[in-house]
Amino acid sequence: MRIGELSERTGTSRRLLRYYEEQGLIAARRCANGYRDYDDRFVDRVVQIRGLLDAGLPTRIIKQILPCLDTPRTIYFPDATPEMLATLEQERERMEDRIRCMEHNRRAITEYLAAVRAYVPG
């Protein structure tokens, strides 16, 4: 697929997709006319990258852990620096905090909906 289609399917700007390519996070084949051609698997990959960026991870760390998100997994232990491990541990804890908060909010919304539905004559 061309960059425009990947952009539409992922909600990611073409500019960001080119940046991801510069950072080595995704790779495109080049057609004879020079256009980028992306494999369908990059739709999920871009969504993963965006999620990791939204979580606060820098692209250099994302590049190292992306293989861990694939199946089969290929993990490169020589790339695991103490800084990277500390960053990932902190990020995991931040994610767990956000999950707990979201679960609390989901329960509160569920209770609110139940109360409103019980009150509203139907």
Score class of each variant (00 low, 15 high):
M1F: 08
R2T: 07
I3H: 05
G4K: 10
E5V: 12
S7Q: 02
S7N: 03
G11D: 03
R14I: 14
R14A: 13
L16D: 10
L16G: 01
L17F: 02
Y19S: 08
Y19H: 15
Y20C: 04
Y20E: 04
E21T: 04
E22A: 13
G24V: 06
A28E: 05
R30L: 06
G34D: 10
R36G: 03
Y38N: 03
R41E: 07
D44K: 02
V46P: 00
V47C: 04
I49Q: 01
R50A: 04
R50Q: 11
G51P: 00
G56I: 01
P58N: 01
R60C: 04
I61C: 03
I62E: 00
K63H: 14
I65F: 02
L66Q: 01
P67H: 07
D70G: 09
D70N: 12
T71Y: 13
D79R: 09
D79H: 10
A80K: 08
T81Q: 09
A86E: 14
T87M: 08
L88F: 05
L88M: 13
E89M: 11
Q90F: 04
Q90N: 12
R92I: 10
E93N: 09
R94S: 08
M95K: 07
D97Y: 04
D97G: 09
I99S: 06
R100A: 15
R100L: 07
R100C: 05
H104E: 15
A108D: 14
A108I: 05
I109M: 15
T110F: 12
E111M: 12
A114L: 11
A114S: 14
V116N: 04
A118G: 15
Y119D: 13
V120K: 11
V120H: 07
G122P: 05
